[in-house]
Design a protein around this nucleic acid. Structure first.
Lengths: 344, 344
DNA sequence: TACTGGTACTAACACGTGTTAGTAAACAGG
DNA sequence: CCTGTTTACTAACACGTGTTAGTACCAGTA
């Protein structure tokens, strides 16, 4: 029974003996209209007594706004599973949205099956889009942006002017490699977090190369191996590095993902080598378990929660038509030094 | 400009030279009404040409349905951060929802700040609620259920008849302990995944006790320690176990969470003991990294993705008024035997 | 010819809200 | 006493859809 009888503003109006318009004025505190204190209090009381909540659909229809952001996860299931920081990002998005009175609609999109998330906009389902893991071959997002739809990327899309919030992965990677250089290493290898066709992998490699160049160390192609999200890819990449001749073999490796680094560590230990005495290791991400690896992993800590928070907050600004103080946001990371680089 | 001009069904009707009603009949394939093939094709073509998508708000208002499920994460931020399986669960929910034409609205609720997710129902924002991590002190959910709101729990709520989908954690825990018994262990300790005030912790302990009883082994209070989501809690709990006298000290430990187990492993190794030779270890969850712990962790694999999928699918059944084949769903887990229990 | 019944539509209402334009009463100023 | 202004409201429209009741037409039948 209670399900069939939804309380509407008309019910409130009737019971309070006023018009529906007055109810709307009171509850929305519309500026510029005067309502007597007696009436206002009566309406408020009745609304509370009846447990009135404005119907979302009616509200959207009348206002044309949905006060909802679409959080699009443009990632394959394997990526999602392996992404240990995803919960933090999502939570950051959620809490920023709540703070601004917005809701979050979650949508996972598989790259191979680009079922248009654009429909969410066309259907007026969301006011703006937060796109995690943008792809270069995604024409849809560019079209939407050109049409004036509020969009915020988490990650970057080269050759577009779509605003984004992202970790400054290049700087973070440089931090990692600089640390290794300061530890005295000269032959430093790189295992990427993902295939180099991904922007995130490119950025981290750029930081690696930058740090080497700054220290006037040569960059050798043989010292760069591709990982792909998983520990096993790290195992293989490291195995390949260990197969190099004694002269070519690196004394330290920057693995651009903690998860991939786990596999690399296993390869090193399986080969009977010690970390950091024989090979030092720096990871990237500072996932919650990195501190408990054996040995504890020196790594780059990313503000995952903060990234989600900032991205959502900036998107909501766009939706509201407020300007952004800066078009793009690059967040700083910090290095967390642990045993995997400290010859204690 | 394109933003200001949304295409409505009236636009389609005008351009096709028919009434709006006809457009609705054609696009919704309403049974029992006859439309000539010529007209139908004309309408379909125009709709495609204009890139028409029905406005979500109008649709909701007219139909009274939102075709959206609310995924409520009733967990503290620390829990969310530590939950390595959460992405899998969320993805399962998402994909089941998509498959049935539903959307997912995500809402994180902090236990200490019970800002009513019930409003989502009152506002007609969602058709049903998927509650992850239900709490005993949550009066709201019981009220909603009594009012006939479709609800599905992920986890269980004793003393209520709210339908749920959950892992059979008791059976899973028994699996773990049985394995240790089969390996010849007689003194088996338990480190819980969470404080015992949590249902999930209770269930896992129940499986532990059941397995001991079945093997006619005594259950000793001194061998049960509480963990709390984090590796550090596992470290402390294990340290306490190691402090027991040589006679009391366990030869094997069931840690009811892989994440907590990481801390326990560190404590064991720090004490100069070996796994599994001195102390064998079984975890719970089979998080993606468990395979890469040192040593690889024997653990209980949970169908996290499947749980999310099944829970969403069952909720949608409830929303549609279809019955459930069974009121509750308990999903099976399996044991994954690795080195932490195999004296190889 | 008149009636029946099916085909192919359309007019009009309902859903619940925000908002603009307008009105009656009270009040203030001359 | 009349006029203009403020106060405190309300009637009516708009938003975009689904749906019920009804209409015009035509073919077939008695």
């Amino acid at each position: 029974m209670p399900l069939s009888k939804r309380v509407t503003s008309l019910d409130v109006a009737k019971k309070a003996g006023v018009s529906r318009t007055t109810v709307s004025f009171v509850l929305n505190k519309v500026p510029g209209v005067s309502i007597s204190a007696v009436t206002r209090n009566r309406v408020l009381k009745v609304a509370r007594d009846l447990n009135y909540h404005p119907n979302e659909a009616g509200l959207r229809l009348a206002s044309g706004k949905s006060r909802t952001v679409g959080l699009i996860l443009y990632q394959s299931p394997e990526q999602v599973f392996a992404d240990a920081l995803l919960p933090q990002v999502i939570l950051g998005v959620e809490q920023a949205a709540i703070q601004h009175g917005f809701h979050v609609l979650l949508k996972a999109v598989e790259p191979k099956d680009p079922t248009g998330y654009a429909r969410l906009i066309g259907e007026n389902h969301v006011d703006g889009i937060l796109l995690s893991g943008p792809r270069r071959d995604d024409r849809e997002i560019i079209r939407l942006h050109r049409e004036g739809v509020p969009i915020m990327l988490m990650g970057q899309l080269p050759n577009t002017d779509i605003p984004f919030a992202d970790i400054d992965a290049t700087a973070g990677a440089a931090l990692a490699v600089n640390h290794l250089i300061e530890c005295g290493h000269r032959r430093i290898a790189l295992i990427t977090n993902a295939p180099l066709s991904y922007t995130s992998a490119r950025q981290r490699r750029a930081g690696y190369l930058k740090a080497l160049k700054h220290a006037k160390l040569p960059a050798e192609r043989t010292l760069v191996k591709e990982g792909a999200y998983t520990p096993s890819s790290g195992f293989e990449a490291m195995t390949a590095l260990l197969a190099l001749s004694a002269r070519q073999r690196p004394s330290a490796v920057f693995v651009a993902s903690d998860v991939v680094a786990v596999g690399a560590m296993l390869a090193i230990k399986s080969a009977g080598l010690r970390i950091p005495q024989d090979i030092a290791l720096v990871g990237f991400d500072d996932i919650p378990l990195a501190e408990y690896f054996d040995p504890p992993l020196t790594t780059i800590r990313l503000p995952a929660y903060g990234l989600g928070w900032a991205a959502a907050e900036r998107l909501i600004r766009l939706i509201r038509g407020e300007g952004l103080d800066q078009h793009d946001l690059l967040m700083n990371s910090e290095i967390i030094v642990r045993t995997s680089t400290q010859k204690s």
